[in-house]
């Protein structure tokens, strides 16, 4: 050590620098240490996506195809039976993955587009823009979002487009708050100040200086918001004001077959009919939550727990 300091040179300066690893190497290292729950989560999420993408090939029948026997019992023809109108439950479950997840994903993307855009704008511009946006969001958030959504749907009507737009706008308030908060933490960094002193445009500062540095919390939030949006749409469909028939959707499938639950004492498989789509919703959310939990643990640096 002492020798090195005698002939100081900037090139050979020693210190605790990090070793560069590619994203791929990093992921491999993290994956090899991922806990059981994280693996479970990843398997669940990827199989759901698989089912959603290949729904037409996997489903035995069409999603709106009606058979003669309503409420058919579980057998070889209809593995999970049929519903009130005689539609195959299994096929509707498989198509449901596509519809329910598709709508929830679109909504979450839209919410992030609005929330992150405005949140970062607010963090960079500060001043009156920030004040107005933040106050406006405070007011939107003063009404519980499910209640707000119910009110707006009663006015504009429950079409898929309305559903996506209304929930995306309501949910973007939470994304806005997060993006604004983490954005603020980066905006005060001197490299952002340096970019402003250089005379860079807002779009450069947003896209090149800030966004790459707030990706980890945003990705985690995307998972959580997806769960929230997904559960909200499921709840609205269950309440009868979400996705409308004949589109196969898990929430409305629960609603349609809900009364069968009363027969659990006589025929357990019948009572399972509403439980299946409900479980499909729950298991996906658990999977996403497990993955997000692990991702948060990896990126938060909150590792004081190894005593």
């Amino acid at each position: 050590m002492s020798k090195a300091s005698n002939q100081y040179s900037a090139k050979n300066e020693v210190s605790n620098t990090h070793v560069r690893r590619t994203i791929f190497q990093r992921s491999l290292i993290s994956l090899s240490k991922a806990p059981f729950t994280a693996w479970l989560g990843m398997i669940i999420v990827s199989s759901y996506f698989f089912v959603a993408i290949f729904a037409p090939y996997l489903a035995p029948y069409g999603e709106a195809q009606i058979f003669k026997v309503p409420y058919a019992p579980w057998d070889n023809v209809h593995i999970f039976g049929t519903d009130r109108l005689g539609r195959d439950i299994l096929s509707r479950l498989i198509y449901g993955a596509r519809n329910t997840m598709g709508i929830a994903l679109t909504t979450t993307f839209l919410a992030f587009l609005i929330g992150v855009g405005l949140g970062l704008l607010s963090a960079i511009l500060r001043g009156w823009v920030d004040q107005i946006l933040a106050r406006f969001v405070d007011i939107l958030m003063a009404i519980p979002s499910l209640i707000f959504a119910l009110m707006l749907l009663s006015i504009f009507g429950s079409t898929a487009l309305n559903l996506i737009l209304i929930i995306a706008v309501l949910d973007s308030t939470r994304v806005f708050r997060l993006a604004r908060a983490v954005g603020m933490n980066v905006v005060v960094m001197e490299y952002v100040e340096a970019a402003r002193l250089r005379g860079e445009k807002i779009s450069w500062i947003m896209g090149r200086e800030i966004l790459p540095n707030i990706l980890p919390p945003l990705v985690a939030e995307f998972g959580l918001r997806f769960c929230y949006v997904f559960l909200m749409i499921a709840s609205l469909s269950f309440l009868g004001v979400g996705i409308q028939p004949p589109t196969a959707d898990w929430g409305s499938m629960v609603r349609d077959t809900g009364e069968l639950i009363q027969f659990a004492a006589y025929d357990v498989t019948a009572a399972m009919t509403p439980i299946l789509p409900a479980a499909a919703i729950g298991i996906l959310t658990i999977g996403v939550n497990f993955v997000v939990d692990w991702f948060l643990y990896l990126t938060s640096g909150l590792k004081d727990e190894h005593q």
Binding site: M189, E190, Y191, A194, R196, L197, R198, G199, R208, P212
Partner: peptide, 27 residues
Amino acid sequence: LSERSKEDLRRIQMIYQSPDTSMNPRH
């Protein structure tokens, strides 16, 4: 700052206390 020309900005540069926060860690 917003009223200064690019040329004005170029002629005065700044170096900060902490090099950790004055360089974008992703660049």
